[in-house]
Amino acid sequence: MTFHPALRTGHNPRLARIAGVSRALSWLTLFLMIAGPAAIAGLLLFDPSNLDRMLIEGLSTSGKASLTPVTRVLAILLALVPLSLVLAALFFLRRLFQGFARGAALAPESGQRLKWIGVILTAFAPITIAIGTLGSAVVSWANAPGEREVSIGLHTDNLTVLVFGMLLVVLGWILEEAAIVADENRQFV
């Protein structure tokens, strides 16, 4: 896609600064995409007891939980679901920053990427509630009968992520439409 000269970073110092910051944020998101899974893999390989403690703390409300080999695998699989959503959001965020760094701030692709980030965040809230509920049952499965638990946790964080996800969907939609209108206006000139 060809961009209007005013949208090229060389002609506008403010856009050049946006491009520079976007380039740095693109590298930061790449680092986070690599560091998150690497940290979990490191815990799994080198400090499994700490990983177990983190899984139990993250998924259990009473602290009366212990992991067996089977429940450990199930808890790790459950924990991978929100991690996958975070990685997907970081992927689209990185692509968005890369586009901004190239001067493609007002491009339909930018709006589409922003919408995808919003969709992922909107889905993140109910998915993490479901994962927490399933996880509480998994980590307490080895407990004696009567000491097993299923907990449903609703936090203001879930509502906040849901609202910001919906906001990003609408802002992405607006950005996509604005880019289309700007492109149509450039074609008339």
Rank of each mutant, 00 (worst) to 15 (best):
L44V: 11
S26M: 07
N50E: 08
A38Y: 08
R23H: 15
F46K: 04
D47E: 13
G10N: 15
S26I: 04
A35P: 01
N50S: 10
I18K: 11
A41Y: 02
N50K: 05
V21Q: 06
R17L: 15
T29A: 12
S22K: 07
L51R: 04
L43H: 02
A39Y: 15
W27M: 10
I18A: 14
F46H: 07
P37K: 00
P37M: 10
S49F: 06
P48F: 00
N12E: 01
H11Y: 14
A38D: 08
G42R: 07
A38W: 05
R17G: 00
L51I: 05
M33H: 12
L25G: 07
L28C: 05
A35F: 07
M33K: 09
L28T: 01
A24W: 06
T29S: 13
L45W: 07
T29Y: 02
R14V: 13
A39I: 08
G20W: 03
F46N: 00
L30Q: 03
A39R: 12
T9M: 12
G36V: 08
R17C: 10
A24V: 10
S22T: 03
G20R: 02
R17V: 15
S49Y: 01
L43G: 09
L43F: 12
L25N: 04
P48I: 06
I40N: 07
S49T: 09
L28Q: 01
